[in-house]
Design a protein around this nucleic acid. Structure first.
Length: 276
DNA sequence: AAGGGTGTTGAAAG
DNA sequence: GCTTTCAACACCCT
């Protein structure tokens, strides 16, 4: 469940349940999840550690201990569940953290794309993938001027450009589709064809969409059940994403779907005309 | 019923 | 360099 609002919802929920609790042992059932060290060392480093806080940057989730941080990326389908130790391990539970009270935190990832890495606390930005991350839409300084500066003379499609986490952190396919709708921009518009006003709209729409989604607990598209009760409500607010053929909420024109950079892109052909 | 698509990202190829 | 494509993997729809 990976865009910024979903990760933030997970961070907040796990924070309520995990802060102050201590890990007894960790078992890894799919080695490639663990990066930067062997699974054996990964488990050894975490045993005995007490969760002090939960953090997040972009789509990366942080479990913060006294001197180390576990950086977790959920990629396409990673989920966390809290359940009693007595429950049998499910097929796609690849990492199980057993707490000293014999509850377990389980990392479930059908497609096995997710990653985990341990870094010194305070150096989260040194984790692989986090080094080059751009600002979040909520960061001070994220505005039309910043985006305009980053754009340079790029001829990339604005849709692909906004998915680039070095430009802006936290947007994924769902929210980029929504941001472009609110900005009135066709997903294939080239970045070099955007005007000052377009960049300002993109910055504002990015903030607005992510903030509203965070407030509503994110978006739940696929069937999702959780012992933590993590079910988003933003799916009721989607204007275009996954709404091919359904009427645009503004003008009623059927929403169209095309591929841009290999990703499904939904837009209103009337409200989002291509320029340039 | 095989093939395309899926809330992602980084390596490889152009 | 910069940009696009594809692979990592499993499952669900046509």
């Amino acid at each position: 469940m990976p865009e910024l609002p979903e990760v933030e919802t997970i961070r907040a929920t796990l924070s309520e349940h995990l802060v102050g609790r201590t890990i007894l042992k960790v078992d890894v059932f799919y080695d490639k999840i663990v990066h930067g060290m062997t699974p054996a060392e990964f488990c050894a480093r975490l045993a005995g550690q007490t969760v002090r806080s939960m953090g997040r940057y972009g789509k990366y989730l942080f479990f913060q201990f006294d001197a180390i941080t576990l950086v977790s990326h959920l990629r396409m389908e990673g989920k966390y569940f809290l359940k009693p130790e007595t429950e049998p391990r499910e097929k796609h539970e690849h990492v199980i953290f057993t707490l000293v009270d014999h509850d377990t935190l389980r990392y479930h990832d059908t497609r096995k794309f997710g990653t985990m890495e341990i870094v010194p606390r305070g150096e989260e930005r040194q984790a692989a993938g986090l080094r080059a991350m751009g600002p979040e839409p909520f960061d001070p300084g994220f505005d039309g001027k910043y985006l305009s500066g980053r754009a340079g003379k790029s001829r990339r499609a604005v849709k692909s450009w906004l998915l680039d986490q070095t430009v802006v952190s936290g947007l994924g396919n769902i929210y980029v589709n929504e941001v472009l709708f609110l900005s009135g921009l066709h997903p294939e518009t080239r970045v070099c064809d955007l005007k000052k006003k377009d960049f300002a709209r993109l910055a504002e729409a990015s903030r607005a969409v992510l903030q509203k989604a965070v407030d509503l607990g994110g978006t739940t598209i696929r069937t999702y059940y959780s012992s933590l009760g993590v079910t988003g409500r933003f799916q009721n607010e989607l204007n275009v994403h996954d709404r091919k053929g359904l009427p645009c909420p503004v003008c009623g024109t059927p929403v169209e779907k095309i591929q841009v950079g290999g990703r499904g892109s939904y837009y209103c052909p009337r409200c989002q005309r291509k320029k340039g």
